[in-house]
């Protein structure tokens, strides 16, 4: 029972974690992509569609990643090459993604989903209490944790990571040092797109295994809030994602138990929690100032 609850929390947290860790890298490079929700929902519809047509959930996962990257390139072309306003362009990406996915997914509504099956390792998975939690979840759960470790190592223990952070903190100086600011930002944006697409695939291939219009239900935005909550630190994103996972699973259990509170109030808890958490974090001015990438959201046009 206890293990079951922990596993459902992990399932609710994983899509948030994957999308947020991608956006963390994007923001560390100084770009604010508010299109996470749009890339995520496009990943969800593509993942579902490809998996349903081919019967292979893995093909669905890869297609979702590809579409996430494609969408992020659209954002990258506008904000990095044409230097459009990043906030407005991110919003455009979200609106386009929500619209397009509804259109593409119209014929998928109500179809039975293809589920990415959980792994099974003999002996290990059968360990009582913790076996399934650590050795018996879906493969993307392990990918999500590995991503956090990899991003953390990359950002703080590798030269490339240092370069990326320098671009995010001061693009002018980075450019003067001969670093290709725009190219690095393109790569970061594409990584963010891949992660958002993967997170979307998780929703439609593991979390719900179905296609429902607007199924991301604001998770892309919550992922953006998680990055702020984590003050741009990878392991704190993990903590935040699991806290949010716990809130959303907690409210589902409370609804099932039928305690005397309107279900709508319980459903709004994850959103209200996001607001509260954002307020608590932003009150601490020092924490935010030290960690916010200094060039975040600033346009950059190289002078030649």
């Amino acid at each position: 029972m206890f293990e079951d609850i922990l596993i459902t929390i992990a399932t609710a947290a994983t899509p948030l974690l994957i999308a947020a860790i991608g956006e963390l890298v994007v923001e560390r490079s100084g770009v604010l992509n508010l299109g996470v929700e749009g890339m995520m929902i496009m990943g969800a519809v593509t993942g579902f569609g490809v998996a349903w047509t081919t019967g292979s959930p893995w093909l669905g996962v890869f297609a979702a990643i590809a579409v996430g990257i494609l969408f992020s390139l659209l954002f990258g072309f506008l904000t990095l090459t044409l230097v459009t306003n990043q906030v407005a362009t991110g919003l455009a990406l979200t609106l386009l993604g929500l619209g397009l996915s509804g259109m593409i997914g119209e014929n998928f509504v109500g179809l039975p989903g293809v589920k990415l099956t959980a792994i099974y390792i003999p002996v290990l998975t059968d360990i009582p209490y913790v076996g399934r939690l650590f050795f018996g979840q879906d493969p993307l759960f392990y990918v999500s944790v590995a991503l956090v470790a990899a991003v953390s190592y990359f950002l703080f223990y590798s030269k490339a990571g240092l370069t990326l952070r320098s671009v995010g903190d001061n693009h002018g100086s980075a450019h003067a040092l001969g670093i290709k600011v725009i190219a690095i930002r393109y790569l970061a944006v594409m990584f963010g797109g891949a992660c958002a697409g993967l997170a979307g695939a998780y929703l439609s291939l593991v979390y719900v295994p179905q296609w429902v219009e607007n199924m991301s239900a604001g998770r892309g935005w919550i992922a953006l809030a998680l990055v702020v909550f984590a003050s741009w630190r990878p392991w704190r994103v993990l903590t935040g994602a699991y806290l949010f996972g716990a809130v959303s699973i907690g409210q589902l259990h409370a609804q099932a138990l039928g305690i005397g509170v309107p279900s709508q109030l319980l459903s709004s808890l994850p959103y209200l929690a996001t607001v509260v958490v954002l307020v608590l974090i932003s009150r601490n001015k020092r924490l935010t100032l030290v960690n916010t990438p200094a060039s975040l959201g600033q346009p950059f046009v190289p002078d030649r």
Binding site: G218, S268, S282
Partner: peptide, 27 residues
Amino acid sequence: LLKARFNTNEILTSLMLVYVAQLFLDW
């Protein structure tokens, strides 16, 4: 208020409140 008083990101808070408003109307 949250932006002026606590410097909280208004993009995220104003959007989160949309979901809350929709659920409130539904209730």
